[in-house]
Design a protein around this nucleic acid. Sequence first.
RNA 1: GCUCCCUUCGUCUAGAGGCCUAGGACAUAGCCCUCUCAAGGCUGUAACACGGGUUCGAAUCCCGUAGGGAGCGCCA
Length: 469
Amino acid sequence: MPVVTRFAPSPTGLLHIGGVRTALFSWLYARRMGGKFILRVEDTDRERSTDEAVRVILEGMEWLGLAADEGPYYQTARFPRYREVIDRLLAEGKAYRCYATREELDLMRAEQMARKEKPRYDGRWRNRTDTRPGVEPVVRFKNPLEGDTVVEDLVHGRVSFSNAELDDLIILRSDGTPTYNFCVVVDDMDMGVTHVIRGDDHLNNTPRQMNMLQALGVAPPVYAHVPMILGPDGAKLSKRHGAVSVLQYEQDGYLPQALLNYLVRLGWSHGDQEIFTIDEMIAAFDIADVNKAASAFNPEKLLWLNQQHLMRAEPAAVVPALRAAFARQGLSVGASDDVLAQVVLIQRERCKTLNEMAANSAFFFSDALSIDAKAAQKHLTAEGLGHLAALESVLGAIPVWSVEALQQTVNACAAARGVGLGKVAQPLRVALSGGAISPPIDATLAILGRERSMSRLQAALQRPPIAPS
RNA sequence: GCUCCCUUCGUCUAGAGGCCUAGGACAUAGCCCUCUCAAGGCUGUAACACGGGUUCGAAUCCCGUAGGGAGCGCCA
């Protein structure tokens, strides 16, 4: 039987990395097994669901390249179907109407808590057939009273629950809308889902869902409950760190494959391998290898991985993302894709994100160069300007403005003046980039171009020399 | 409170009873390389939660304890 997995986020909050990793595991498993991956939006809570959250799910999945083979399905579009299944359960005596009021239930729970018992519905309408005028009933599922329900979980192994611990959950609210646990069961059944991969906060819901499936005469899917992702401090993921929209990582200059690589290694590993391409992940991934313990989100390792992917990517492939990063910084860059690919090539081993790359490369493209005061103080001294003057004449005479020629010329100039390369390169670097840090000086000159390089050099020479402090 | 789950360096992890003097990665410290910053290379600091068993032998199996987490809604 072909594998069918699904990712079923609820649009009540913005999709964050916890959800993304669950989606990734489901997607990888389907790809690995040659199966099908379904996207289903669980929007039955109309009060709390937002269009914005739905948008983030759709755009986020697209940015990450986690394409669904089917869907997106929306639960709100399936209400008639849920109603149909509830009617069937009612007719078969596997569900019943409960006329207990909220006040009565609150009181019941308060009493149970006072007795230090687990708060649960006591089945007071389970065997009644009468009605109560003036009260709109809910429909409850008749859960087995005895025996155990055993979950054979792919990551946790065998987990057993006593049916006596489970109460008769509401499957249809008094306003006529179905509830989450019920919709999941019907959807997974209708959509032929074979492997349910989800957060382990759902492990406790699983026996109820299995019991409903059994009442419907359907074999349960295989379950895999994956551990949660914690914040860097080991506490629950919060807005402060990580629990932000997945699209924020795009805004922050991360590559989707780097985020995916980071997330796949949270709770899963393949020997000592740290860096994976998407294809390598698919080839190596198995849900049975996923760990049981929750793991903490580590932004520094994500940063490292992002740079590793930047360094391994085809430069041309990251150009669009680099352009977007420039745009976010308010810089519209007219340079060609070819020039930007060169920028990627020389900057990527000193940048962890595209935003950093754009910020450190802005000097190539901005018209007004501002010189950092501290850098000037240190390098644009009388001595430094002397080197610059020499550089100006030799560079001005270069026939072909190529990296090789530039490197030779600058080296020769330093040698002729009897100083190390650093003595001439640093003043030149400040004149060209405005700061003491940049890619290698020859590559910087090459990308900047003859015209811009020479005019910046000349501008620096106009400055009054700074006395060394 | 009850039920269920979890526990190897600061963090992510390797580890299926002897291969473990517990390996790798991020971070961190030092060194090398070097035109700056990086990248890269080398080296170091650093962990089996605790207590009992079982076994010739336990990070690995069993039982407790402690700590952490989740669930117990007309939320998903």
